[in-house]
Design a protein around this nucleic acid. Structure first.
Lengths: 342, 342
DNA sequence: CTGTTAGCGCCTTCAA
DNA sequence: TTGAAGGCGCTAACAG
């Protein structure tokens, strides 16, 4: 592999000059620049990024830590991050934290020790305080899916409370009064916010929140199934179920269908996230959007702007959820008020 | 940030000794080792991986190139790769090739220029020849989801032909004779192999392959929908549809349901891949497994073994698909032979 | 077992 | 505009 030294010899210039044309910071005369370019071409020269990093104290890499690599979220988010960053010739190093405090911290440590120029974190288990301290360190950090007031300028987040409100409001405006709620894990901020939005809508419609009809689950399909089994075992009237994400909604619906309940005739459902798959199931799931891909893009832009001084990008930090009404929710018919109470 | 130099001063030893205890290659007396460890602890020392890489000519990073970052595949695969590699303190750099030859080659270039110690590639558009040449270069490369005879020892792949055979054989053994097939893009090897398995099963049951009932699609949900619309527009009897992946199957099923066809009563379906989601839809999708996560793990192990000399791992290169019979396929009843012909 | 001494390939003042 | 020279933090012979 040719080095900068080989190039300098061949072009008859100094190392410094070669370095200059590579980074075209300083002025180099067109003539020498051309000589250097020719030499590079001839030798098939490729700069050694490791050496560049060591000398310049910049790795051109940004670390991304997400809670989990699989599932419908991480992919779209990564797609945007990778695209945005690679077009600026930066690369992405990934790690996952598994929603566990220890693992999340280890992931951060790991990425920092790799000399990342910046970190994009989608973490759930670590405390606000930890993140605040982290953001005071020398490595710039931006957070996805998290809002911390003290460092809000580095948070890219969805208005989850509003989303929870929208979902429930939609159901209520359809005339439903006997609602159940399947929540995500309440140690996660988004789950708490969505639930809070749910409660706000209930209050607005003067409907009491029944803690027994609110089940805390895990954001997974099987979690939704389990929660639904539990809800049905209560033998309370339920005409609609608001789910904190689409995956749980799908799991819950599958349980109902298996028991012969018709959706939405006997029981309505609404999810959250608007992931692609449930748009292809029967019935198509009503839901609230979660533009995770846009948020990934924004986080990448934040890094480009703050760390790599790209002046051409604007960053938006707050995203609004949007209601998508499809086929799993319908107006309450008198006939089904007690549909699933024996 | 403390450097190795600071540690050496504090511990009262040389740079080399500090380096030695870090890499514990050579023997160091317990006493000095402890002094060094203490000093490291006291200074909160973290080795600079960039400098390590430059000096050792090893980046401890492995590049992973996949065709797409979103969708139900990449996640599980990455999960395993990241877990396996991180536990060996290696990191993964990702890039995506979007099933496009140019982008795939760029991705490879990109990862190589980042000094990756090895590459794990899940590429579809580049030629066998290109990959053969690539594997002769100095950077070790392993391929997922691809079988090339000349370099089979670095291929981790699924027996797709067998999977295609199994799926179709299941349907045929249920008595179906009027089968349609929704294929993936035929420039992709896995799509071709699955189709070939399909044909083999047909031949075994003495059923002619009808090209008109074989639609080439794109492995996506909406592609499955489009393909199904087309098939139905043919007004030919169809009692079962074999789909080259679960996503297309889901899209196709949604079209049928929307038209009032009952699945599986009027028409049976089988997919391929066994992704989680269709297990929660109605009807639960029969399918063939594609252990992409296992394949990711194997690729990572291959790297650990070949590049980082880990003797404790064994690598398996060929994976067998397995049939999962669920609710979307059922025995042909005489009543539905012409179900969807008007 | 430990220290000395060159680099790894490149960037970046400082002079010229 | 260009060149010389000193690192960046660490590894890897080579001695001792």
């Amino acid at each position: 592999m040719a080095t900068i030294y080989d190039v300098s010899i061949m072009a008859g210039v100094s190392l410094a000059t070669v370095s200059r044309v590579m980074n075209n910071n300083t002025k180099v005369s067109d003539k020498t620049k051309q000589k250097v370019l020719d030499a590079m071409q001839a030798l098939g020269y490729r700069p050694n990024t490791i050496a560049q990093s060591l000398a310049s104290n910049r790795s051109n890499s940004v670390g991304v830590l997400v809670s989990q690599l699989d599932g419908p979220f991480y992919g779209p988010m990564m797609t945007e991050i990778e695209t945005a960053l690679r077009s600026a010739n930066k690369h992405v190093i990934i790690a996952s934290g598994h929603s566990d405090e220890k693992q999340e911290k280890e992931g951060v440590e790991f990425l920092m020790s790799r000399g990342c120029d910046a970190l994009i974190l989608d973490v759930e288990a670590v405390s606000d305080q930890y993140l605040i301290e982290l953001s005071q360190g020398s490595t710039p950090v931006v957070f996805i899916n998290r809002y911390i007031d003290a460092i809000k300028e580095r948070c890219v987040y969805l208005e989850n409370e509003m989303g929870g409100y929208l979902a429930t409001q939609h159901i209520l405006s359809l005339g439903h009064k006997a609602l159940a709620y399947i929540s995500g894990p309440l140690f996660k901020l988004d789950a708490r916010d969505r639930l809070q939005g749910h409660k706000r809508a209930l209050a607005e419609f003067n409907i009491a929140f029944d803690p027994e009809l609110c089940v805390e689950s895990n954001f997974r399909e099987f979690g939704g199934s389990d929660a639904m089994e539990h809800l049905l075992s209560l033998n309370k009237p339920i005409t609609a179920v608001v789910c904190a994400n689409d995956q749980m909604a799908s799991g819950a619906i599958s349980v109902c269908l298996a028991r012969g309940l018709r959706v939405p005739d006997d029981i309505s459902f609404i999810g959250y996230d608007n992931i692609p798959f449930p748009q292809y199931i029967s019935p198509k799931l009503s839901t609230v959007s979660n533009p995770i891909n846009e948020m990934g893009k924004m986080a990448a832009r934040w890094v480009l702007q703050q760390v790599y001084n790209d002046k051409n990008v604007v960053v938006e930090s707050s995203f609004q959820p949007e209601l998508f009404i499809r086929d799993s929710s319908q107006a309450l018919a008198l006939s089904n008020v007690n549909a699933n109470t024996p």
